[in-house]
C-alpha cells in the first residue's frame, strides 16, 4: 500500500518535472531596422545577440532596404524572457565597443519594431 502511494507520488512528481516546471515560452516577432550614416563599401551587415536565432558568435545577416544606408531583419523568437540584448555588425566589426549591449524590451507584446543607428546607443 505504502509502496503504491510512493510510486504514484513519484510518477506525478516526474511528470511535473518533465512538463510543468519549465518556464513558459511565447512567440515574439522582432523587426530590427538599422540606419548607417556616412559609411561606404559595405559588404555585410548583421546582428548578434542572446537567444536563438541570435548568437554572440555568428552574425544574423540583415538585408538592405537602401544599400549602404538602411538594413533590416525580422526575427521570430521563441522566448520566455521579456527582452533581448544585441549589437549590430558592419563588415564583421561589432558596434559599441566596450559599451553595454542594446536592449529590446517586449514585455506583453507579440511583435516589436526596433530602430537604431549604427554605433550610436
Amino acid at each position: 500500500m505504502i509502496m503504491k502511494k510512493l510510486l504514484t507520488i513519484s510518477a506525478i512528481f516526474l511528470m511535473w518535472m518533465q512538463f510543468g516546471c519549465v518556464q513558459k515560452t511565447r512567440n515574439v516577432t522582432i523587426q530590427l531596422n538599422l540606419r548607417l550614416a556616412g559609411m561606404k563599401n559595405i559588404t555585410q551587415v548583421g546582428v548578434r545577440g542572446n537567444g536563438k536565432p541570435l548568437s554572440w558568435q555568428k552574425d544574423l545577416a540583415m538585408s538592405p532596404v537602401i544599400k549602404d544606408s538602411l538594413y533590416t531583419v525580422t526575427i521570430h523568437a521563441i522566448t520566455g524572457y521579456n527582452f533581448a540584448e544585441l549589437k549590430f555588425t558592419v563588415n564583421g566589426t561589432m558596434e559599441l565597443d566596450g559599451m553595454p549591449n542594446r536592449r529590446v524590451d517586449f514585455k506583453g507584446a507579440k511583435s516589436v519594431t526596433y530602430n537604431a543607428v549604427f554605433n550610436k546607443p
Binding site: 516546471c21 513558459k24 520566455g80 524572457y81 521579456n82 527582452f83
Partner: peptide, 15 residues
C-alpha cells in the same frame, strides 16, 4: 526580474 522566472521554475533555454 528580467529573466521572468516564476518560483522554482527552470529557464526555458536550459532543457
Amino acid at each position: 526580474a528580467d529573466a521572468n522566472l516564476h518560483f522554482f521554475e527552470v529557464a526555458f533555454w536550459f532543457p
